[in-house]
Amino acid sequence: MPLEAIIILTVGAASFIRGVSGFGAALIIMPVLSGLTSIYVAAPLVAILGLTIDTLLCLYYRRSFDWGLVGKLWLGSLLGIPLGFVMLRFLSGNWMLLALGLMIAAYAVYALFDPVMPVLRSRRWMYGTGFLCGALGSSYNIPGPPIILYGSSQQWSQEKFKSTLSVFFWGNAVLVVTGHIVQNRLTETVFQQYLIAIPSMVIGLSSGIILSRFFDPLLFRRIVLVILIFVGIRLFVLGLQS
């Protein structure tokens, strides 16, 4: 199958899942494209696709933003970024991925059977969640799991869940894309593949959003938990491969 067709299908499917659940696109696109091209093409491509998706979702869910919550998460993230650099230098990446993947999958399996999960009401959890996101983002480029787990524990509505994740990821995506620009990684090849992916991205994202409107809160939560299980397994496998 031609590379262009694989890009279209992969980005379309990943964008659909992002539209349905509010997360997960990069974990689908990155392994596929990095195996077909190179990490130096796939990483900036995924970054600008992610920034585009985050921007569209921020605009769509703009009325559901909780700026106080997002501000606390961003502050915690900024404080956690230096720790991530320390982790990257002194801790084994494969063990971190193994532990994180196992923790996410175990939580999702446990929560899927509808036990009574405690709602974390203290503001400290918001700062702590952002702190972990910043540390994992600057070390292993996976800032999403802590805020996804936190959002799931809070039993947010679908709109609040997606809007909070989107605006938080948007801030992270801006920094990542800026880093690629500084390192001159946004090459002509990256932009060509980006232009190829845009139509399927828009179709997949909009289709996922439209379909998700028909989900009741319980179904939406279960979909999020099932995707979390796959995310956890994927991180665990990456740890084994490392």
Rank of each mutant, 00 (worst) to 15 (best):
P145E: 06
L59Q: 07
K72H: 12
I104M: 12
M87H: 07
L27R: 03
G80S: 06
F90Q: 10
I181H: 00
G232M: 04
L225C: 04
I229C: 15
V176I: 15
W67T: 09
V86P: 00
H180T: 10
L100T: 13
F131W: 13
S166F: 05
V86H: 05
F214K: 12
L56R: 01
V202A: 02
L59A: 14
T10R: 01
P145L: 08
Q192G: 11
V20N: 04
L165K: 04
I6Q: 05
L195M: 12
L75T: 15
M30N: 08
N94L: 04
T37W: 03
S21Q: 03
L56Y: 01
S207Y: 01
G144C: 05
T55W: 03
D114W: 05
Q154L: 13
V46T: 12
I104E: 07
F65H: 14
A99Y: 11
I147Q: 10
D54T: 13
L83E: 02
G22L: 01
F16R: 05
L235Y: 14
R221Q: 13
P145C: 09
A99G: 13
K72Q: 14
S212N: 08
Y61R: 01
S15H: 00
T164G: 03
G134A: 08
G130T: 12
T187E: 06
F215Q: 12
S206I: 03
L238H: 10
I210N: 03
Y127G: 08
G24F: 06
R89H: 14
R221L: 05
A106C: 10
I17N: 04
L235E: 06
L218S: 11
F168A: 09
L59H: 08
L3S: 11
S138E: 05
P115W: 04
Y60Q: 09
V202Q: 00
T187A: 07
F230C: 13
G19F: 02
V86M: 11
Q154A: 08
P31Q: 06
P2W: 04
L195F: 14
A14R: 04
N172W: 14
Y127W: 15
G22I: 06
Y110I: 06
V182K: 13
G239C: 11
V182S: 10
R121A: 14
S200C: 01
S206C: 05
L205G: 00
R222M: 05
C133W: 08
